[in-house]
Amino acid sequence: MLENTFTERKNTFRENKVVWKNRRTGIMFILPWLIGFAIFSIYPIITSFYYSFTEYNILKPPQWIGLGNYIQLLNDDPLFWKSLYNTLYYAVFSLPLGMVVSLVLAMLLNTKIKGLAIYRTIFYMPTIVPAVASSILWMWLLDPQMGIINAALSYIGIKGPAWLVDPAWAKPALILMSLWGVGGSMVIYLAGLQDVPEELYESAELDGATWWPKIWHITLPMISPTIFFNLIMGLIGSFQYFTQAYIMTGGGPMDSTLFYSLHLFNNAFRYYHMGYASAMAWILFIIILAATLLVFKTSARWVYYGGTNQ
């Protein structure tokens, strides 16, 4: 009896030793990533939070001012509200439009037609074009005098707007440009569409369903997790819209394209108000977090997993 107990303990000790050895090996493999994550992610986040309560311009040590940056943002900075409005305007119009266009393209490219791989490649290619190159291209396309878009409109008797130099058309121009990059979302939708069982469509056809009831009652519910994913990613990306506005308009004309991230960038790297920019970054984080949580809260009503509402 004692011998059996001793043998069991000995085996348990050996097993624990092997488990610890494997665990230690795993930790050693991920240690470089953990160190990099701590240095380049966790430390900047903590530092940014501290700087948001200070007056800091890089050249001098930070001085603690408490909630001064946040109070100034909310009460004394008209560009803060202007940039927030521009960002919300862009998100409200570009996100639904981009989701609809990418979904329609994915449904069209999910059919069995000749040369399907070529069409998929063509629609996806703009996604891999660098943002700077695509911005310069669209500056040419949207040129009010020499641009192809206004030239095409003139052929059908429509005088094209001034686009990027007109405050009323600058944001719509950037929203139009955003459709250029829907190929990434299109591919994700396409993957979701290919997972929809064909048997559901066949059963619906036997019951006399036409194309729209099949889309509404089968396609959309079955790919609702994919729609949910693209919605979250698109929402976050819309609130962080920066590169195209920075290159194409610089926030103009008349601050009509001064998006929140661009205003934050100007304060941080043009005016060197690092503490002020840090406060802006944390406000943006709170806004994105609140919007994301709201979408998550509503997802239980319309997102389906495995045919059941979660």
Results as ranks from 00 to 15, higher is better:
Phe6Leu: 15
Asn11Tyr: 13
Lys17Glu: 10
Val19Cys: 06
Val19Phe: 12
Lys21Phe: 07
Gly26Ile: 10
Met28Asn: 09
Phe29Ile: 15
Phe29His: 09
Ile30Ala: 11
Ile35Arg: 08
Thr47Ile: 08
Thr47Pro: 02
Ser48Arg: 00
Phe53Ile: 06
Pro61Met: 11
Gly66Ala: 09
Leu67Ala: 11
Asn69Val: 07
Ile71Thr: 13
Gln72Ile: 01
Gln72Arg: 12
Asp77Val: 02
Leu79His: 05
Phe80Ser: 04
Trp81Leu: 07
Trp81His: 11
Leu95Trp: 05
Val100Met: 04
Val101His: 00
Ala106Asp: 07
Met107Asn: 11
Leu109Arg: 07
Lys112Phe: 05
Gly115Tyr: 00
Met125Ile: 12
Ser135His: 04
Ser135Pro: 12
Ser135Trp: 04
Leu142Arg: 00
Asp143Tyr: 01
Met146Arg: 10
Ile148Asp: 07
Ile149Phe: 14
Ser154Val: 00
Ile158Pro: 06
Lys159Cys: 02
Pro161Gln: 05
Trp163Ser: 02
Ala168Phe: 03
Lys171Gln: 13
Met177Tyr: 09
Trp180Glu: 04
Val182Trp: 00
Glu199His: 06
Ala204Ile: 05
Ala204Phe: 09
Glu205Lys: 14
Leu206Asp: 10
Leu220Cys: 09
Pro221His: 08
Phe229Arg: 04
Gly234Cys: 06
Phe239Gln: 00
Phe239Tyr: 10
Tyr241Lys: 09
Tyr241Phe: 15
Met254Phe: 14
Asp255His: 15
Asp255Ala: 13
Tyr260Lys: 00
Ser261Ala: 12
His263Ser: 09
His263Trp: 12
Leu264Tyr: 04
Met280Thr: 04
Trp282Lys: 03
Ile283Met: 10
Leu284Asp: 07
Ile288Asn: 02
Leu289Asn: 05
Thr292Phe: 03
Leu294Met: 10
Ala300Val: 12
Ala300Ser: 10
Tyr305Met: 00
Gln310Lys: 11
